[in-house]
Write a protein that binds this DNA or RNA. Structure first.
Lengths: 339, 339
DNA sequence: CTCCGAGATGTTGACGTAAACATCTGCGAG
DNA sequence: CTCGCAGATGTTTACGTCAACATCTCGGAG
């Protein structure tokens, strides 16, 4: 009977012994360097396959100081945008040979955010992508490790860090002007939570667009991105016959407005026009299908990784990236009533 | 002028020197062992804070053979369920001091799945959670590393692996019986893709329930979980006056059916009742608000981690876990017309 | 006063890899 | 025919931590 091979995984040394070469040659073959004789390389590869060898990442990381891993910090995956961001980030990272490590922050308290950064410092990552409410970030007085590259999504333009974002202002302007073009007197807004730069920028651009057209700027409703908060605003909106056009800060809140309108018997779009923001997958199937602003979470996510990898490689600070947005007209908007 | 400290991160040796103790004592303090004199421990902790020391995970992993990391393999985060699973998994893992590494499989080809597993073997993980179409998994002829614990979500009950799932059968039965109780002659079904055990089990239970009640079992529509596929089925359904009750395999397809019904002027629920599955966040805000089956992605995700951690610790194979489902009645179902 | 044990602390080496440096081979120029 | 160089391959060592073992100190029992 043959003695059972040890349960330990094969190491480079084992492969070297089996192939009759040195560990160093094994290492060279494993990394695909070309200064190895083809015949030798083949022999080594056969031995690797035979023994089921794969390099130990911990040892590799220890030796090289590189983990080939990127940490991602976010609050929740429940929001459409965050899930999309993560998906794009993971794919872009994977394409570059990097792996994503998820650092969830369950509770939106400052203490929890602080804790996440503390845990972060002992993570084995080469860089970090942060997708989080900007305010909580600045409130939490933890400094990010100075030597670790960081890219923040949903941040204001700052001098130190590369900037990457959807063109929030363009989107909000397109939405507002679309409604004005349809003859509405003015446009009401269901804003996202003020802790988000995205919400603030959309609101500001909506305001500026109304002002530029000389319209009254009504007091915005304040939501928290959730359909419930959109519904709450929608009940108020549906009651008021003077409101004929609403721009919601995201599709979820727009859906809440639609529901409130249906319940109140307020016809959309005949009596009330609604525009969302995001173009989430389901938006096309809402009733009526939602007119909205399409943004490319994918591009932003991929750019974030590109930027981060650049920083990791000590590339010079790149140009800021602004990903354009686009108006998608569907069935939830129409000419102002009585016109 | 003081010479700039080296850019390298402080190591245990640096802390030891600063605190005037040995590396081993530093290690003991870092791990919170109690066999260190309080005074010494304090001195070491001060030095750690001073130097900004945190243990190097790569070295720790190399030494101990444990990475405190769990790999998660999934196709997409775009589906509500997957995002929810990942969130629950990440949180449960984090609570247990583990970190999640994401291994995305972008294309649903067998080759890509195979590639993911190949890459996986060189990952630094202690265990794996797989959330993927069961068929693709069995087709891909890669064996999972035998020594690596694996938990599969959406798998059939097998003898070798612990089993964990939502009670799909209960949910499908509740949905079907709810519609029968409302007086509908029979219930049509928009099934999910047959590659998913979840889809197959829901379909089978729907079929069994109809048979148990002595009803005709119509040919099911076949979708792919997407709202578009639900919409396609819905257009056919809306055309046919004989169909008065539909059970869709998930909420997204139910939304597609709702849209098709609206477009065709088919009143929901007066003329057509619709039930979904999942109870996604937006379901309550659909028009009409969707009657659906609530399942706890959270419980399943957390159980998956609990099971995996058990396997990692070589605990005995635990009981199978079946998480119950629940009928949530909202506005999309009503008594059969003409009754 | 001596010895012993318990608890605190120190020393050594190994984990698997890759960088730096060393050696070896063969071939062509002079 | 010798030398030197280029390319292939081997040897040594360090990365940071932790387990195992060694040592040291101190107090109490005999």
């Amino acid at each position: 009977m043959i003695t059972e091979p040890s349960a330990r995984k094969a190491s480079a040394a084992d492969v070297a012994r089996a192939a009759g070469v040195s560990m160093q040659t094994v290492s060279r073959v494993a990394r695909g360097l070309d200064n190895v004789q083809p015949a030798t390389a083949t022999r080594v590869r056969e031995a690797m396959a035979e023994l089921g060898y794969s390099p130990n990442r911990a040892a590799r990381a220890l030796r090289s100081g590189r983990f080939h891993t990127i940490g991602v910090i976010m609050f929740t995956l429940s929001s459409y945008g965050n899930a999309k961001f993560l998906e794009a980030i993971a794919e872009a990272a994977s394409d570059a040979g990097y792996t994503i490590t998820l650092l969830p922050v369950s509770h939106r308290t400052q203490g929890d955010v602080t804790g996440a950064f503390a845990r972060l410092s002992e993570q084995a990552v080469d860089g970090i992508v942060i997708v989080i409410e900007a305010d909580l970030l600045s409130e939490s007085n933890v400094e990010l490790p100075a030597d670790l590259p960081v890219v923040i999504i949903d941040s204001s333009r700052q001098s130190e860090r590369p900037f990457i974002d959807t063109d929030q202002a363009l989107g909000a302007r397109l939405a507002t002007e679309h409604l004005l073009d349809l003859g509405h007197e003015t446009v009401w807004h269901v804003a996202g939570p003020s802790g988000y730069y995205a919400a603030r920028r959309r609101e500001a651009a909506w305001r500026e667009t109304l002002e530029a057209h000389g319209r009254v700027v009504p007091e915005p409703f304040r939501g928290d991105w959730s359909t419930e908060s959109g519904y709450a605003a929608g009940r108020e909106i549906a009651r008021r016959a003077d409101i004929t056009a609403v721009f919601a800060g995201n599709d979820g809140m727009a859906l809440g407005v639609l529901r409130a309108a249906h319940e109140a018997g307020r016809a959309v779009p005949a009596s009330l026009s609604v525009v969302g923001f995001d173009d989430m997958t389901e938006a096309e199937s809402f009733w009526p299908p939602l007119t909205t602003i399409r943004q490319s979470f994918d591009s932003v996510g991929r750019s974030a990784i590109a930027l981060l990898l650049g920083e990791i490689a000590h590339a010079p600070r790149p140009e800021d990236v602004i990903v354009p947005t686009e108006l998608v007209v569907r069935g939830s908007t129409a000419e102002a009533p009585g016109r």
